[in-house]
Design a protein around this nucleic acid. Structure first.
Length: 555
RNA sequence: GCGCCUGUAGCUCAGUGGACAGAGCAUCGGCCUCCGAAGCCGAGGGUCGGAGGUUCGACUCCUCUCAGGCGCACCA
């Protein structure tokens, strides 16, 4: 739609210039907008205002000249000059009827756009350390990552959803020791549980499972010479719990990459050598450094510590190097906002290899403050006392939880009060949208019982009885869905879908309040309104699917 | 001290450099003999944190400033 109008305006401008009505050499960008107010038309352009200075004339006069060169067009009802110099376009009803027929026909495919044109994108998200269950903050990242991935897919991108597992290094040693201590504790050795270890009750459960499997076999092992079996057992138990929780949250991954495998494959050494070749590696105080300051970082970063051990950064650099090699056109990392200080050094890697670091997008998920009755709940994994994602999902429901996370931009902080969400659950916006879908399903079922059945290959003749402003308004909103998907994908802002769906539901509910769909004495209008309702249900279903939320037929 | 994020209605939040800044909740007043009232219709409620600047035009861009949050490791 916008593209067509753009072409029309452009050709008019060219004609006007040939005729000498317009003098400027440089053509301003033709921007077609959707005005906020209905009386300003379906679309508008500010092109005349942009040309005012170069033309040295009043914007309204230029707009009038453009209009006078605009001939009749099959989709345009009328155009007018308005306000300071806008040109507003009003499209014909027949155009909207065609759009509606298209939506009904496209059904589950409606909302797929071509913005991505087969470009390969990787979205890495959650990537929580396997040292404990996921908490609510991880849940937000999971919801954003999963929804964004679905939206990018709809927008034509070839998406790989990936989880990076930090399963090596000091925190894994701590994890193993934590299990060791719980194990010995359960076997009756009165050792005091050390500080700075993972104290959560989940470690006791894992220790019990460990005893079930291994008995007292490792009772005589020493902490210093900690058998690897402790670490491996804890890692795999926790990781499978994480996978289960994500699945229950409707979050799937295509690839799970283990940090240990990156290290074992020698990618860290390889990457360091590659960087050395770029002349950005040096030694100081017995450690090996990456001169990230060459690329705008605050300070240089250590890759290999003086004690010979890798830093976490070293394997992360190798991992991102691997991402580059895998040929993604775009790499999207979704991180907790507390990691924002980390982005300079990762971007440094991209820049060191002459990669446009625009290929890397980092989305920061701001803090979720979990509250219960207004009181903050600790979310420290080591502190032991925390509410897991699973507990929250069990309490408020998967759909409400997923949708709630989409109710604000990722870069805004979020208070999540469990008691409040629980109380408000029935009034949560998600139910408003789902209710709209259920209501339409109910209407269509009733219509069917009365003998009205909508044909699958309806053309616009079926919907041309739709003339009411309520009806046209609804069609226009439906037609905008593709633009919303595209915008949401390109801006990487999944919340746009959630807000759109609420607006769509509101317009339908309002339409419903004023009009009957099933009219025993007017078969044609009944079919037309059934088609309209069907289209609304389709868009709601498609949109909710992108958010990982179900569209129930009954509630 | 430096850096990142956020300040919009009583509360929680949307808002593409455009035309009179919008929702939900809360408050108040209406609407079920009629397709689902988890709904609809209406009302009140704003110095877009503040001050400069750019622009024909700024909630939006720039500078400064105030407030809240989060980071500034040879931790992960």
């Amino acid at each position: 739609m916008k593209a067509t109008l753009e072409e029309i305006v452009l050709s008019v401008l060219n004609t006007a210039r040939v005729e000498g009505v317009i003098k400027s050499e440089a053509m301003p960008p033709i921007i077609i907008d959707r005005p906020k107010r209905e009386e300003h038309g379906d679309f508008s352009t500010n092109v005349a205002m942009l040309m005012a200075s170069s033309e040295g004339r009043k914007p309204r006069d230029i707009a009038e000249d453009i209009l006078s060169h605009l001939g009749a067009h099959e989709m345009i009802e009328k155009c007018e000059v308005a306000g300071p110099g806008f040109i507003n376009f009003f499209l014909k009803e027949s155009f909207w009827h065609k759009r509606l027929a298209y939506i009904i026909k496209a059904a589950s495919e409606f909302g797929r756009v071509e913005a991505g044109k087969g470009k390969k994108v990787q979205v890495e998200f959650v990537s929580a350390n396997p040292t404990g269950p996921l908490h609510i903050g991880h849940g937000r990242g999971a919801a954003v990552g999963a929804s964004l991935s679905a939206i990018l897919t709809a927008a034509g991108f070839d998406v790989t959803r990936e989880y990076y597992i930090n399963d090596i290094g000091s925190q894994m040693d701590t994890l193993g020791r934590s299990l060791y201590h719980r194990y010995n504790e359960l076997l009756g050795d009165g050792i005091e549980f050390p500080e700075n270890h993972y104290q959560g009750d989940y470690m006791k459960d894992i220790a019990r499972d460990f005893i079930t499997k291994h008995g007292e076999k490792y009772r005589d092992a020493s902490v210093e010479d900690l058998p690897k079996v402790f670490t491996m057992f804890a890692r795999s138990t926790i990781l499978s719990g994480i996978k289960e929780d994500l699945k229950d949250f409707n979050v799937d991954f295509d690839v799970w990459t283990s940090e240990a495998s990156i290290v074992e494959r020698g990618l860290v050494e390889e990457t360091i050598e590659a960087l050395r070749g770029k002349g950005v590696i040096y030694e100081k105080d017995g450690a090996l450094w990456f001169r990230t300051t060459d690329f705008g970082d605050d300070k240089d970063r250590v890759l290999i510590k003086a004690d010979g051990k890798r830093t976490y950064f070293a394997s992360d650099v190798a991992y991102h190097m691997e991402k580059l090699r895998r040929g993604f056109d775009k790499v999207i990392d979704i991180w907790g906002a507390d990691h924002h200080g980390y982005q300079g050094r990762i971007r440094a890697l991209f820049k060191a290899f002459g990669e446009d670091d625009k290929r890397l997008d980092i989305i920061f998920i701001q803090l979720v403050s979990l509250l219960r009755n207004g009181e903050p709940v600790s979310m420290s994994t080591r502190g032991g006392e925390f509410v897991t994602l699973k507990e929250v999902v069990d309490e408020v429901g998967k759909d409400a939880c997923r949708f709630t996370f989409m109710m604000r931009r990722s870069d805004a902080q979020l208070d999540f009060d469990l008691e409040l969400v629980k109380i408000q659950a029935p009034e949560n916006p998600v139910y408003y949208v789902q209710y709209c879908h259920a209501r339409i399903m109910s209407i269509l079922t009733l219509a069917k019982e009365k003998g009205f059945e909508l044909s699958d290959n309806a053309d616009e003749s079926i919907v041309e009885r739709l003339k009411e402003s309520d009806e046209i308004k609804l069609i226009k909103k439906l037609a905008a869905f593709e633009e919303v998907v595209e915008k949401s994908a390109i801006e990487m802002e999944p919340h746009r879908i959630a807000f759109y769906l609420q607006e769509l539901a509101a317009i339908f509910h309002s339409f419903y309040g004023r009009n009957r769909v099933v009219l025993d004495d007017d078969k044609d209008l009944t079919f037309a309104r059934m088609g309209l309702s069907k289209a609304v249900s389709v868009v709601i279903k498609n949109g909710l699917a992108m958010l990982g939320v179900s569209a129930p037929d009954k509630m």
